[in-house]
Amino acid sequence: MESRGGLDTNFQSSICPLLSHKTTFLFQLGDPKGKTVVGRIYRVVDDDLYVDFDWKFPCVVKRPTLDAHLYVNNAEVRLRILDLEMSTIFLGAEKETSLNEANCVLVGLINSPLGVPKSKEDFSSGFN
């Protein structure tokens, strides 16, 4: 076994059981592209919603027109992941440039501190 930063290498890495845990993001997801996840809005700047979904980077989405007033801090939203990190190696560059952002599409609102989303109301009334 190769040496690992001056550590005793006789034991198994303690990250193994942590990673295989059921709730771990990214490891129960499989290929993240196209998967739907739940995120929480933690900052609103004009029409930009900063959503944290337990990943290294947050994602920034535009505020939709439907239920626009309900998208406030601590509102839970549903997101579809396109890319976990928006980064690329530009032509002529040696290093990769990253926006430090994930690329996601806003699917809808789950709940908001300000009230029940309209689309959800319609949905539930349709059943009754």
Binding site: R4, L7, S13, S14, I15, L18, L19, L26, L29, D31, P32, K56, L84, E85
Partner: peptide, 9 residues
């Protein structure tokens, strides 16, 4: 998924 995971030990 093409992301680096650090060894936490």
């Amino acid at each position: 998924s093409s992301h680096v995971i650090f060894d936490l030990d």
